[in-house]
Measured scan of single mutants.
Amino acid sequence: EPLWIRPDAPSRCTWQLGRPASESPHHHTAPAKSPKILPDILKKIGDTPMVRINKIGKKFGLKCELLAKCEFFNAGGSVKDRISLRMIEDAERDGTLKPGDTIIEPTSGNTGIGLALAAAVRGYRCIIVMPEKMSSEKVDVLRALGAEIVRTPTNARFDSPESHVGVAWRLKNEIPNSHILDQYRNASNPLAHYDTTADEILQQCDGKLDMLVASVGTGGTITGIARKLKEKCPGCRIIGVDPEGSILAEPEELNQTEQTTYEVEGIGYDFIPTVLDRTVVDKWFKSNDEEAFTFARMLIAQEGLLCGGSAGSTVAVAVKAAQELQEGQRCVVILPDSVRNYMTKFLSDRWMLQKGFLKEEDLTEKKPWWWHLRVQELGLSAPLTVLPTITCGHTIEILREKGFDQAPVVDEAGVILGMVTLGNMLSSLLAGKVQPSDQVGKVIYKQFKQIRLTDTLGRLSHILEMDHFALVVHEQIQYHSTGKSSQRQMVFGVVTAIDLLNFVAAQERDQK
């Protein structure tokens, strides 16, 4: 057995438009009618409502009807409940999964919650491996369901041993009777949507819809739904939504950006999952974080739909894509998950301010006199920076000697690579993860907040409520011999709460 199987392995699926269902090699399930009293909570997966979006479509000038398939009504709160249950049931049916076995899954959280929910009911041990950027709410729900959680670096490539995929496979090879159901490759993922989600949409719309818009992560949702719609409703256009920084969209030119990270969760990847059939997507749109969270908040405030950030991405694209539809036509959007997962993220004004998705003037509360002053007023001194090749031991000596707790790590040209902190280095040394002679590049981390000289002290204040420091950066445009230009970030300084307090105190003292 291989040590790991690539999540982007070539698909062996034989589905073709027009091929009889009787030739399918898979076990198919028909939607079942729910009894009045459910035998367990797993029976509350599927049969989610279709809700008309009344205000947002009109606000953006849509002539067509805009409908939302509300997947956050599933038992675990997301569309991923469907595939989690289906993968477990299919693994039980073919004898792969037996009582007492362990389920391991690399996930952005929602599939993990679905699997942990099913594992709690069915009696399996469950280990979820997820990147650090995923919300604390997801972690809390997983723990409450009895799952064990392993976190991995957000910026690790999918084929790196440190990625959530790599760590999951390492655990599988170490733990007896453990299984990775593997949402990236498992046919049960798109089949769950082909058999149930798509049929529900067709039934709820009486077979009449002209466009379907869905955000894409593993691709199982859009693949399964689109294949069924292509068979039953061939005139329906399928629109895929991919965040900026991901590479799922086609044509490839759409993916060209210097951005590699994004805040919206559960969609987009740096590889093409095996289950994603991009041939059934008629057109791709890219979405960005700001519009995703703005539209998610709009869905909550104006439509009462308590959905997550990827739902915002989907609707932001839908109001663009559906401009081509006329009166009497219908566009369906998939709202994948609930706001429950993001209470401390985009639902929080403070978080939105820190990330730059909300401006101070958007909030009406009274601010102190210094709130709208610029960061450049602080008069920061030149920063202490270190090269990635310097040793951890030497870096600790320098920081202690100069009285700093942290320093930016830059390359020879001064471009920011990340940050090192005294606390992080000492804990890594004590844990045996690094040696004093190791290069400081081994303990770089990139989960820090950046701020510009033109940003306000109010925004800085919000950042420092949650973080010990902020890195002050400025952009530099560099022209190359080819005539092309590129933008790079340079370090201007490091600012802490002490710097802000000293500035405010000094100004008030001078005024007296």
Score class of each variant (00 low, 15 high):
E365C: 11
V410Q: 13
Q354M: 10
S481V: 14
P388H: 07
V440F: 06
L299K: 10
T395M: 05
L500M: 11
Q439Y: 12
K359D: 03
V495L: 09
G356S: 10
L347P: 05
R340T: 01
V319W: 01
E265P: 01
G328D: 11
F293D: 01
V280L: 13
D455M: 15
P368I: 15
V440T: 01
C331F: 01
E253I: 11
D438H: 12
T389W: 05
L460I: 01
D411T: 14
E291P: 01
L422A: 15
W284P: 01
I300C: 07
S486W: 08
P336I: 08
V491I: 13
E360C: 05
V281D: 04
P336F: 03
E244M: 01
E397G: 14
Q302N: 15
Q354P: 05
Q435C: 14
L399V: 08
A506V: 07
E258C: 13
L384S: 14
V264C: 10
I498V: 15
I238S: 01
A318Y: 01
A407S: 14
S481G: 15
V420Y: 12
Q487K: 15
T257D: 10
F448M: 06
M298Y: 15
M466S: 11
F271W: 04
Q439I: 08
A316R: 14
V333P: 07
A413Q: 12
A382S: 09
V319L: 10
F346S: 04
R400L: 10
Q435L: 12
Y262W: 06
D289R: 01
Y445Q: 08
K512A: 14
K484I: 13
M352S: 04
A505G: 12
G483V: 11
V241F: 08
E465L: 12
C392R: 04
I239V: 04
T482V: 09
M419F: 12
F448I: 12
V375N: 13
K446I: 07
E263H: 11
D289A: 01
L422N: 09
K402S: 14
Q487T: 13
S381L: 12
R330V: 11
G493T: 14
L363W: 15
S381I: 10
L358R: 09
M419I: 10
S481N: 10
V443Y: 13
A413R: 10
N424L: 15
D455G: 10
G308I: 03
E263G: 04
I272L: 09
D499Y: 05
N341H: 01
L363N: 07
S348C: 04
I334V: 12
R452L: 12
K283S: 09
D499L: 01
V386M: 09
K283L: 09
T294S: 09
V319A: 12
E263A: 12
R297C: 01
S485F: 13
V491P: 09
D289W: 05
T364Y: 13
D270C: 06
K367S: 08
E361F: 11
W351E: 13
K433A: 10
Y479Q: 13
S348W: 06
T395F: 05
L373R: 07
T314W: 03
F492C: 09
V420N: 01
A316G: 13
V410C: 10
V410G: 12
S428Y: 08
V280F: 10
C392Y: 11
E303A: 14
C331N: 04
A407L: 14
R400P: 10
Q439P: 08
F293Y: 05
R350L: 12
V415D: 13
A296Q: 04
R297W: 01
H372V: 11
L353R: 08
L500R: 04
I334Y: 03
E365H: 13
E258Y: 07
V410A: 10
V264L: 07
Q439M: 05
I300H: 07
